[in-house]
Amino acid sequence: MRKIIFSLIVLLSMSYASYAQCGDDLLKQALKEMGESQYIKDYTIELVKDKKDTKTGYVKFSVVLQSRTQYKFNLANGDTNPEQIILQVKQGDKLEASNMHNGKLYNEFEFICGKTGVYNLLFSFKGGSEGCAKAVQSLVKQF
């Protein structure tokens, strides 16, 4: 019985840790990395496999991006994520920008938007692994 109680206490501690690694601290990290640009919005990404699935999918947010505007996206990964978060900026099916570029993953990137419209931000983890992340969208400058 003591073993059961010990196991439950471990489970309890793990659940606290799980919350801490995907909570406000992660947002604070992304905000700090945002630097001097002007905050617009933040996004929470939590991808967990369903029982029937072998991989996680993606989470999508729609956003209006304005022309002649330079945006920055900062990404903060949960401490225990096996893989890093991937962000794809798409308009319809067309990939406009991503933090995965030439096989390298970046924790931030800037996107100079030339056309006002509705864009989709698609977040996923490499290889469809589980994980959590926070992303901050900010304004660098306008032309």
Binding site: S67, E96, A97, S98, N99, H101, Y106, E108, F109, E110, F111, I112, C113, G114, K115, T116, G117
Partner: peptide, 15 residues
């Protein structure tokens, strides 16, 4: 382009 380890992407469309 990558400048000081930072990635900047310019959209290929302009309204």
């Amino acid at each position: 382009m990558e400048k000081d380890g930072k990635l900047v992407i310019v959209q290929d469309e302009k309204s």
